[in-house]
Design a protein around this nucleic acid. Structure first.
Lengths: 210, 210
DNA sequence: CCGTCTATCGGGTACATCCCTGAGTTGACC
DNA sequence: GGTCAACTCAGGGATGTACCCGATAGACGG
């Protein structure tokens, strides 16, 4: 049976969720304060933690990040009144595997917890679109036609320049002379119609060349 | 009742899914080939399309991207034997709202379709972790505590440097002397523990400072 | 009133970078 | 065997950067 831990600073809400989820899951414990929650979750090692986002003392984000650093197998489902993009992103970055709003029906909530326990990602309808849109925008096409203009060696030099290395460092890493690095960079600048290594660095980071 | 459209180049598999999903959903149609699928989906305008990833003639990615360009409200659930990261990313980028493997149980599949119809994102357990990991890595924190170390003027200079401008150009844009720009950059480098404007450009672009 | 912070400049030095010309080596292709 | 592209390296000059020294002026708070 899935062991569930609850965290929410509203005691009344906590009691409500406890009574709804009690028959379905093994309640490993509950907490209404951040530091208390971190310690209790570490001690009870539940399968899933249902956690409020907005709480005094760092909020749910701190609990998730903190616990995951020592117990990466515990899964977190964020439960919040807010559907603000910043909150969702913060929780996902911290490591939450799902995010639902408090307006959810009890039956839907227990179904969501079960899915999280199985390893699925769960998002409320309105959030799913936002999360996937952001995800899609953030993964750019790795191929660029202009990159084909460059020879393999030139691309290799370009990648090092893009990381912020000086010519001297690039030369040492590739076991070639500084003068050779200069030659390659000059070719790259000419082929890409750029005028300085600074513009080149911007050009490269825009295309995630690392 | 949710209108469902099926696309799969394996006729036998298509027939199996049809018989399983038939009682639960209104079957808007089905197709076993890419171009045929695009036309038929546009004509029938279903709520959800269950689509195979690997198909001759461009695969499911082409169908999703093509149909969404004219019908952005149709939702796609990818169904594949592959759980390769490239396939998953390609389908998400194209606009699919979910991705499950063909080893899924029929009951789970119909539940997934229902969730997709409601607007949720659905992923198989093994894929959920991968998608969220990639998502977390790709969304940087927009606010950075180290930026508060810099004075407003220093941040302004930093933004120009991050765009690849030379000191001379920055000076002209801000109507100050080159020497002043040098002073500001020096302060920024010292405060951020960096050693050259090249590293600074990388630092800035990592944080989307533009 | 005085200290600190911020923003503004300058001189001067050491080094990095950009650009030019020139030149030797491979390997592929005809 | 000649051509060509890619890769390698060098000299040298013009410009850009990093960092040291210094200075002035305004704002703000104790």
């Amino acid at each position: 049976m899935t062991a569930l831990f609850l965290v929410d600073d509203h005691e009344l809400f906590l009691a409500g969720v406890l009574s709804e989820m009690g028959p379905e899951f093994e309640i490993a414990g509950s907490a209404s304060e951040v530091d208390e929650a971190i310690d209790a979750i570490r001690a009870s090692e539940p399968d899933v933690v249902l956690i409020d986002v907005h709480m005094p003392g760092g909020g749910g984000v701190r609990v998730v990040a903190d616990v995951l650093s020592t117990h990466p197998d515990i899964r977190f489902l964020a439960l919040s009144v807010s559907d603000a993009p910043e909150d969702v992103i913060a929780m996902i970055r911290a490591g939450a595997r799902g995010y639902v709003t408090k307006s959810i029906a009890p039956a839907e909530l227990s179904a969501s917890v079960r899915r999280i326990a199985e390893g699925d990602a769960v998002f409320s309808p309105r959030l799913a679109g936002f999360v996937l849109d952001a995800f899609g925008r953030q993964i750019p096409t790795p191929i660029d036609p202009e990159l084909d203009l460059l020879t393999p060696r030139e691309q290799e030099v370009l990648r090092h320049i893009a990381r912020g290395f000086a010519y001297k460092q690039v030369a040492r890493k590739l076991n070639i002379s500084i003068k050779t690095v200069e030659t390659h960079v000059s070719s790259v600048l000419r082929k890409l119609q750029l005028s300085s290594r600074h513009e080149l660095a911007v050009w490269a980071s825009d295309r995630d060349i690392v």
